[in-house]
Design a protein around this nucleic acid. Sequence first.
DNA 1: CGCTTAAGGTTCATTATTTGAACCATAGCT
DNA 2: AGCTATGGTTCAAATAATGAACCTTAAGCG
Lengths: 277, 277
Amino acid sequence: MSTIGKALSLLDTLSRLDKEAGLTDIARLCALDKATARRFLVELEKHGFVEQDQDTRRYRIGSAPVRLARIREARFPLLRVAIPFIKSLAETATETVHLSEFSGGQLSTIHVEDAPRAHRIIVDVGSLLPFHATASGLAFLAFSPRSEIDAALEKPLEKFTDHTVVDPRLVRNLLDETAARGFSISDQGLEAGVISTAAPIRTPTGHPIGCVAVAAPLSRTTKTAVHEFGAQAIAAANAISEKYYGSERPMGTSPKSGGQIDEPHGSLAKDTRHRNR
Amino acid sequence: MSTIGKALSLLDTLSRLDKEAGLTDIARLCALDKATARRFLVELEKHGFVEQDQDTRRYRIGSAPVRLARIREARFPLLRVAIPFIKSLAETATETVHLSEFSGGQLSTIHVEDAPRAHRIIVDVGSLLPFHATASGLAFLAFSPRSEIDAALEKPLEKFTDHTVVDPRLVRNLLDETAARGFSISDQGLEAGVISTAAPIRTPTGHPIGCVAVAAPLSRTTKTAVHEFGAQAIAAANAISEKYYGSERPMGTSPKSGGQIDEPHGSLAKDTRHRNR
DNA sequence: CGCTTAAGGTTCATTATTTGAACCATAGCT
DNA sequence: AGCTATGGTTCAAATAATGAACCTTAAGCG
């Protein structure tokens, strides 16, 4: 792996810790030599990506990402665009609605609107969404190129509940259903008693960048309601996609043709070149 | 320079551009070979720090910094950054210093450092600071967009003391003076016998998020002292802004001059698009 | 106290990664 | 067609990354 990759992985590891960490721990967690970890940290610190506490000597995420995030959001504000739609959906569905974004090979929650009810599903901002076990993950994969699906399903799939589907073949079936329907359903895939539906936010070329998901307690949710949430999630996701990418030509709105739009034909060589990871 | 440093500089350069950039431009701006720039970009893209537009092939800041920024802000809130500065200011001013943060449409006190004296001003953590009647409120409004000023002054303004200014026109005059001076003065606006000065903590775009204020008994405070407190409040507020958001200026390549640059944000940043946290 | 342990931090010969000139591919333009 | 600009790729040469061993400090403990 490249040095840059290693350093960024270190940053990622540091960000996933619950607390600030010392040099030795960081080196161990990243499987790096202490000297190497230190050099990375010093380099990252120079650029503001990490900070070392003066007293404890421990390291934490620095302020540079805050600056970059502001620039990104100013120039490319998914959150800004999406939040009104998420809010409105949470109101009409009267269930918790959350928004996820694909970044660095993972799908993570970037916004949550709680249901206006006492009994509701809680989702944390920042939480990671496994591809095979969440509605968001399924919706994301279902509209991704086959190569990404293969990559996601070749690692062992964790079984979070009795209902989690961990057989890659069965997951593929779910993906096919999702692609045909336009939205995904996860029946207690990540947590018992929770049913979710999700639809992908996509670039004008059809490539998903994140998802809109509705999460509800299974106990009060009928099959009809699930399908209604799904339809609403699609509507919200499409509205966000359109607003986010401006008035570019809206691609085929029929979810039917949704599946693997990306280059099903033509230069395979070219495709594989850009799809490293 | 290390590879990591070069890659992070590339990211920094990319972030300072007004628009998305192509490979050749990026390589030129960073004084890197095209091949090198490309390898960096690919590596950064893998980790979500940059994104390549599918159509234009241009590069932009990715979404990974957004995730890191959220974590940083959750784990290292304004309070932690600001307290050392507030403490130090309380010591040099030998008067009570308090810190406020704007949240939910109101300015509220989030930290207080008491003056090291028997006779001192008491401020409670959690207390709300009316915009028209406190130094913090005035400092906050003075650097806010006009729309926010208008909104704050259209409700009836409560008269807390004989000295409280409640005529919106006169309040606007105070705001103009504050904007020109860089810090606000509230002469017994909320409580008789107390004079306060405050300066805003601002985002890199100039939008205020809170204030640093010095509160002193009127009886022992000369006009000169007030202006000194004001200057110190500005210095503290700017130092906090910079530490919290990171420097907007190019990364100092000289590790030697690591010192704080605290110049006032004279910027007329018109970017009013900002996000909630 | 002095010994032990563990953490942060550093050195420098060895090793693997980075580098960039030259290359190819494609698209727009005359 | 030819020209030019851009994105993207290759591979021998140059350079930067590596890590075992080392130093330093501070806490823990008989």
